[in-house]
Simulated scan of single mutants.
Amino acid sequence: MKVLVTGGAGFIGSHIVDALIKENHTVTVVDNLSQGKLEQVHQEADFYQIDICSPELIKLIKKAAPEVIIHQAAQIKVNNSIEDPIFDARVNLIGTLNLLESAAQCGVRKITYASSAAVYGEPAYLAIDEDHPVNPISPYGVSKYAPEMYLKHYKNIHNLDYTVLRYANVYGPRQDASGEGGVVALFCDRLIQGETLTIHGDGEQTRDFIYVGDVASANLATLTKGDGSIYNVGCNRPTSINELTKILSHANHQSIKTKYTIPRPGDIKESYLNSIKAQRELDWKPQWSLHKGLAETLGSYRKDNRHLRVKVS
């Protein structure tokens, strides 16, 4: 199958590209390299440095003629969306609209869209399923949710099919330590430097950590399943930051220095997703335990000098 991946030079997108090529799909990658890295693009993929907001996008889609587009390109930082909501909307909303309009005009069959647990906001109940109220509390959450509505419109009007995947906290090799939601990458980075890990609050806040390889396999499942539906992609279990630190310490084979500081304003205390619907309808389930995934991630950071160093404030 011909598949185009936007953001295919980035953290999640590059893993999806690798998985697609492993399954013998023909892959085209679109990335403006503002966050992605060219060296992360599989050598068998066709790469084009194009911004999803660019009028050049439709020309490329017409040339590549993909059956499916997996849309990963996005502005991903919550803080940036608060500081510059216009830029956030330009990339996540206008860029996605440009992609949808181009896809509809070029006869693309389907879009798989990377959404986020951020669309839910403060949990009304746990675990969060797909019927949970949508109540984003940041411009990022808003700009990730709005395209879901446009996808329904394009399906109804243009017969452009779609699947929405709402990701939990994705971690794994190639993730920049500066990325929003990248606590695993940040902790791995500082462990390698022998620095103390800073934990905001009491460390009992919980998140749903999903390994990037499992996210990639969920995307591949949508090539033939899940048309017109929304799915959570997570592990169905909460992990506290304290528990995360303990598992990393075990993977590191030595104790970790930690310090606790004041909670960050606006942080959600508890959150994890119910992904039973995806397991049932996409025939998908997470294969990586947190212990195995963290060990793999930490090992990759030790071997790979491409991770981004973060200045300690």
Rank of each mutant, 00 (worst) to 15 (best):
E83S: 13
D84S: 14
D84G: 10
P85W: 12
P85S: 13
P85K: 15
I86A: 13
I86R: 11
F87S: 15
D88H: 02
D88L: 09
D88Q: 05
A89W: 10
A89C: 10
A89N: 09
R90A: 04
R90L: 14
V91L: 14
V91Q: 12
V91D: 07
V91R: 11
V91A: 09
L93G: 00
L93P: 05
L93Q: 08
L93H: 04
I94R: 11
I94H: 11
G95N: 00
G95M: 00
T96D: 04
L97S: 13
L97K: 09
L97R: 03
N98D: 07
N98V: 03
L99A: 08
L99F: 08
L100K: 01
L100T: 05
L100E: 01
E101M: 05
E101V: 07
E101Q: 07
E101K: 02
S102Y: 02
S102A: 15
S102C: 12
S102T: 01
S102N: 02
A103K: 03
A103T: 04
A104E: 12
Q105V: 06
C106D: 04
C106P: 10
G107Y: 00
G107R: 01
V108N: 13
R109L: 05
R109N: 11
K110Q: 01
K110H: 02
K110I: 00
K110W: 00
I111M: 07
I111A: 06
I111H: 11
I111S: 11
T112L: 11
T112I: 15
Y113H: 08
Y113Q: 06
A114K: 08
A114C: 14
A114N: 14
A114P: 08
A114Q: 14
S115M: 02
S115R: 03
S115T: 11
S116A: 00
S116R: 11
A118I: 10
A118Q: 07
A118S: 13
A118K: 04
V119S: 02
V119Q: 02
V119F: 03
V119R: 02
Y120V: 02
Y120N: 05
G121N: 06
G121W: 07
G121L: 05
E122P: 09
P123M: 06
